[in-house]
Simulated assay, not measured.
Amino acid sequence: MITYPQYRNCGGRLDEYEFDQLEPGVCRLIDSYIKSNIPYWKVRKLTEYDIDFSDLITMQVDFIAENGGKAALNGNSDFNVTSVSTKGFNYQMKGKQVPMFNNVPLSPVMVTELRNAMRQTGLLSMSL
């Protein structure tokens, strides 16, 4: 949905190969998230919503890359690890409150900005 030059122009930090590996999955993730949060009669193709997704996709691509990469898009993110144990050493993580969608971590800033964009375009309203 966005090109590598658009991604870099929005502040993206990955190289082109990594971006190409993650961008399609991130677009499907955002599309699914939108569809699960709006009334069924407002569902359209991602490209048909009156929203510029460049910054949102960039934020989510970088967030996914930092938290498990392609495995995170399949529900195996770094946020799924809650404790680690080895000989004489135990470590437990608590309090990592990251929004998840179908077990895939979402950038908290991306979620806020996406929901604001959806609100501004009327996607979140229930009226016809």
Score class of each variant (00 low, 15 high):
1 M>R: 00
5 P>W: 09
7 Y>V: 08
7 Y>G: 05
11 G>Y: 11
12 G>E: 08
12 G>A: 09
14 L>M: 10
19 F>G: 03
19 F>C: 05
20 D>I: 02
20 D>A: 09
21 Q>R: 09
22 L>R: 02
23 E>A: 10
27 C>D: 03
30 I>W: 02
33 Y>W: 12
36 S>E: 15
38 I>Q: 02
40 Y>V: 04
42 K>T: 02
42 K>L: 08
42 K>S: 05
48 E>F: 13
49 Y>K: 00
50 D>F: 08
51 I>N: 06
52 D>I: 05
54 S>T: 14
55 D>K: 10
55 D>A: 07
57 I>Y: 04
58 T>W: 02
62 D>Q: 04
64 I>C: 00
65 A>S: 11
65 A>P: 06
65 A>C: 10
66 E>D: 13
67 N>P: 08
68 G>D: 01
68 G>C: 10
68 G>I: 05
68 G>Q: 04
69 G>H: 03
71 A>P: 04
74 N>C: 07
75 G>Y: 04
76 N>A: 10
79 F>M: 05
79 F>W: 02
81 V>A: 09
84 V>T: 13
86 T>W: 13
87 K>T: 14
91 Y>M: 15
91 Y>C: 14
92 Q>F: 12
94 K>Y: 14
97 Q>C: 04
97 Q>G: 09
99 P>R: 07
99 P>K: 05
100 M>D: 09
101 F>P: 00
105 P>W: 00
105 P>Y: 04
105 P>C: 08
108 P>M: 08
109 V>L: 13
110 M>C: 12
111 V>W: 02
111 V>S: 03
112 T>I: 07
112 T>P: 01
113 E>M: 10
113 E>K: 06
114 L>F: 01
114 L>T: 03
114 L>W: 04
115 R>I: 11
115 R>N: 13
115 R>K: 12
116 N>L: 11
117 A>W: 06
118 M>C: 09
119 R>W: 15
120 Q>T: 03
120 Q>D: 15
121 T>V: 11
122 G>K: 01
122 G>I: 08
122 G>S: 07
124 L>M: 11
125 S>I: 01
